[in-house]
Write a protein that binds this DNA or RNA. Structure first.
Lengths: 221, 221
DNA sequence: GGGCGAGTTTAGCCGGGGCTAATCCTTTTT
DNA sequence: AAAAAGGATTAGCCCCGGCTAAACTCGCCC
C-alpha cells in the first residue's frame, strides 16, 4: 500500500505540528486542516484512511498521532524536502526564500537513488539552509532547538538557530539584513504594547524594527 | 485551464509519435494508448478532453494531431524532460539508462525558474545524453535525424546520431560496448533470416552480435 | 447540570483519470 | 458485395481527494 503525495503531506503535517509542540500528545484535526489549507472534513477523511493503513493513531474527536510506521514515512519525506532545499540553494543558487516551495513538490517525486546522490554530493548535511535539522536515513532527528526571538531577553546577544521556511517575504527581508542560522542578534529595545522589537545584528550598525510576526519566525538559542 | 501531468503525458506522446512518423498526418488512438500503457478507452477520453481545450485536433475514428497550443505545451514538457536527463547525467552522475525514468516524473514538476537555472548551468545544451535534440524555449526543434542501424548498409562506417532512451537494458549494453551519440559503427555482416547484425565499433576490435530489436534502438546518420 | 460554541465527524456531492464490456465505425479480405 | 477484423467510441463503473452542509461530541461556563 503505497502512500500518495496527498497522504505524505498529511503525515508530514502531523509530524511537523507535533515537533513544534512536543508537550501535547495529540494533534487536532483542525490544526492539520489549517496547516495544509484544506477543509476539516477532508482532514478527517484522510486521517481515517491513514489510520486504516496503520500509519496514524486516530482517536475520534480527540486527535491523531503518527504510529512508528507513519513517523518513518513522514521523516523520509522531510528528509527529501530538506535535502532538496539544501541542494537547490547550494548547487543551483536558488534564493533561500524560494527553495521551500520548490522542494514541496519535488519531495514527493525524488527517488531513493537521487536522494542518496544528492546527500553524498552535499557531504551528508545535517541542516538545511533555514537551520532545520535533516533527518538521517535511519530516521533520527534532534529535538527542536531555540525559541522565538520574540520571547528572548533584551540586551543579550543570541545566536540564530533557525528561521521558519514558509514565509518568503520574511526570508527575503531576513537575508537582506543579514539574519541567517549562525548569525548573532540582540534585542536592543522592545516597543510598547506588542510593538516592534528593535534588533541589532552582529556585524552591522543599524538597528531594525521587527514586527511580532517577523520576530516569531526567527528562533534563537 | 492548467494542464495536468496526465494531460501533459498525452500531449507529449502525440508529439513524439508524430515526430517519428512525419509522413502521417494523424496519430491513432491506439498508438497513443499503447505508448502510454493505457486502455484505448482512456485515450479516447483524454483526447476528447484535450480537443475541448483546444490543444488537440481530434477527428473521431480517424486520429488526432496537436494544435499550435498543444505543440507548445508538448515541447515545453519535452524540454523539461531532456534538460533533466542531461542534468542528472552531468551533475549527479546518474547512469544514462536511468535518467529517462527519473526525468519522466520530474518533468511535470519543474518550475520555469529551475528550468532556466539548469539550462544555464549546462550551457544551454542542444542534445540530451541519448542524442535527442532539446527544444529551445521558443519551441523550435530540428527534424529527426538518422535512421535505424538495422536499415543501414553493410561495410560502411556510420556515426551514431541517437539511441532510444526507453529501454534501460539496451542502454546498459550499449554503454558497455561503447556505443553513444558520436561513436562510429559499421555493420560487418548481416545474419540470415532476420538474424543478428555483426557490428564493429570504432576503437574496439571485437565484433558484437546485435538483435533486430537492439539494432532498431540505434540511429545512425 | 444545562447550554453553548468550538471542533469533529458524517453524508452526499464533484471532477480527474483510470478500467471493462459492449457497440460502433472503417478497412480489409474473401 | 458481404463478412470479418480491428480500431474507436460509448456506457457505466471505480478510487482518489477535495468540497459543503448538516449533525454530533466535548469541554467549559454559568
Amino acid at each position: 500500500m503505497k502512500t500518495s503525495p496527498a497522504a505524505q503531506d498529511y503525515l508530514k503535517a502531523l509530524w511537523q505540528i507535533g515537533w513544534e509542540r512536543p508537550e501535547e500528545a495529540l494533534v487536532g484535526t483542525k490544526d492539520v486542516a489549517d496547516h495544509l489549507g484544506v477543509s476539516a472534513a477532508s482532514a478527517t477523511n484522510m486521517l481515517k484512511k491513514l489510520a486504516s493503513m496503520g500509519l496514524v493513531d486516530h482517536q475520534p474527536y480527540r486527535g491523531a498521532v503518527l504510529t512508528e510506521g507513519g513517523r518513518k514515512i513522514a521523516l523520509e519525506v522531510i528528509r527529501h524536502h530538506r535535502l532538496l532545499e539544501t541542494y537547490l540553494a547550494e548547487a543551483l543558487g536558488v534564493p533561500w526564500e524560494r527553495v521551500h516551495s520548490e522542494a514541496e513538490v519535488l519531495e514527493h517525486v525524488l527517488s531513493e537513488d537521487l536522494e542518496d546522490r544528492i546527500a553524498t554530493m552535499l557531504g551528508d548535511p545535517r541542516f538545511d539552509p533555514h537551520g532545520h535539522p535533516i533527518p538521517t536515513k535511519d530516521g533520527s532527528i534532534p529535538a527542536p532547538t531555540g525559541s522565538p526571538l520574540w520571547d528572548a531577553r533584551e540586551g543579550e546577544a543570541f545566536e540564530v538557530a533557525r528561521v521558519r521556511d514558509d514565509r518568503p517575504e520574511a526570508l527575503m527581508y531576513l537575508a537582506e539584513v543579514g539574519i541567517k542560522p549562525g548569525a548573532s542578534v540582540e534585542i536592543v529595545e522592545r516597543g510598547p504594547v506588542g510593538g516592534p522589537l528593535f534588533v541589532k545584528i552582529a556585524g552591522a550598525d543599524e538597528v531594525h524594527a521587527f514586527s511580532r510576526e517577523l520576530s516569531e519566525a526567527v528562533f534563537v538559542a
